[in-house]
Design a binder for these strands. Structure first.
Lengths: 235, 235
DNA sequence: GCATAGACTGTACGGCGTATAGTTGTTGAG
DNA sequence: CTCAACAACTATACGCCGTACAGTCTATGC
């Protein structure tokens, strides 16, 4: 007969990148908890142990996903722009990628512990900060901070939790909003007042990100060598 | 005979708080992955299912731990101080608590998804930001940002990973440093240059935190109503 | 034609969270 | 003093998980 069983799932040979593809797809669709070796293997029409030919263990698979994510981030900047704009565009492109893969932030946080593979983007970031006048030490801190700021902005988006339906998300937000609004107002006046903004829906996600990035960039500018001293609260 | 078996492990009745105590202790000592229902039960000299009398499920236990952590954070500020100092002291006290429980940041990130219990601290933060002139919407974003900044500063501390020995940490850092230093310098000049700061040991953890808080506060000050417009990169 | 090595399967182990049902020890009413 | 009722816990079991270890195909080079 023909080499393929035809009526069944098509089965070419696996490869690292094919596995990573499918894994990312699965994680994005159903949340990172759904990404198990066994589930992924089923999805690929294969025995769980087959994956261990391509990856030493699950940790290495996750690292592969993180690599893929980093590969998708555009790590270039407009050389003509001023450094704050360059820094902003780097951060924004990171955020874009994180938002386009709902599982990405969880993934990167997990894989941060290992040697991470985001060399390219980090290099560019450091270069931008160097031009801004920061020494290696400050630049390192800021670059790290930028990465985590991106992660945190995505993870702190109200009601963010990949692998749940839109109704669940809305329901959860509504519940929280009610909980907040029904706190004793004389004890928690600001909290009650802020019940709505604190549980803002995806409508103003753009405000969330815009403001978050602004806040970060403004901080870096204020710390830049040559910035007007300003009124700091520092010790 | 006497009511207690004496020679055996003393066994008073369990309670939510006793369980939380022991759980936190375990998580801090051996990392959050070591905090399993079975392990915790063993530690308490009890059947795993016994814990389910006091907690609906593991998620609720984690929420209990998060509550405990939040309870330890000092949520008061010097009313005489200027708002940037107040904001700073809030953030610093959060960081203090997170650093004193090595499992705390992982814990809080997990429990953030649920209604979180940090009402008190959030209320004070919002009040401080209100005095600074921010409206509820901006104040909410900044308060959220402050919380996540604290989390991220602790989690991004170089080599941070609870439940590993000091030697492991040092070894891992050294390895990463070598990896960085041996990248092609003409392709990654800044990265190679920053190899040491990027993998800085606990010696200058204080710099890490100091600078991180400075950066955040400076950003908030720059965004404050009435701040000099400055040279922003904003659109 | 056949050994070899790469890619995969089969089976099993120990650990996880937890559903369900059964067993105690204490307590307060009769 | 008895005994039902209830709180607090135990026993057992199920279906997941990651993965160690050993066996089995299958394509390829000689």
């Amino acid at each position: 007969m023909a080499p393929a069983k035809a009526a069944q799932v098509e089965r070419t040979r696996l490869s690292r990148s094919a596995v990573v593809d499918r894994a990312l797809q699965l994680a994005d669709a159903e949340g990172i908890d759904a990404l198990t070796i066994r589930r992924l293997a089923t999805e690929l029409g294969v025995t769980p142990m087959a994956l261990y030919w391509h990856f030493r263990n699950k940790e290495e698979l996750i690292a592969g996903l993180a690599d893929r994510i980093w590969g998708e981030t555009r790590g270039d900047v407009d050389p003509a722009a001023a450094w704050p704009r360059q820094l902003r565009s780097l951060l924004e492109s990171l955020i874009d990628v994180l938002r386009s893969h709902s599982s990405a932030s969880a993934l990167l946080i997990d894989s941060e512990k290992l040697g991470s593979s985001h060399w390219q983007v980090t290099e560019v970031t450091l270069e931008v900060l160097h031009k801004a006048g920061f020494d290696a030490m400050h630049a390192s801190e800021i670059a790290r901070s930028a990465l985590w700021t991106g992660l945190m902005l995505v993870m702190s988006e109200a009601g963010f939790d990949p692998g749940i339906t839109e109704e669940e998300r809305a329901e959860r937000l509504r519940r929280k909003q009610v909980e907040l609004a029904s706190l004793p107002p004389q004890r928690y006046p600001r909290l009650v007042e802020a019940a709505v903004p604190l549980t803002a829906c995806s409508d103003d996600a753009s405000f969330h990100y815009q403001f978050g990035v602004d806040l970060f960039i403004a901080g870096v500018q204020a710390m830049a060598p040559g910035a007007l001293p300003g009124r700091h609260g520092g010790s």
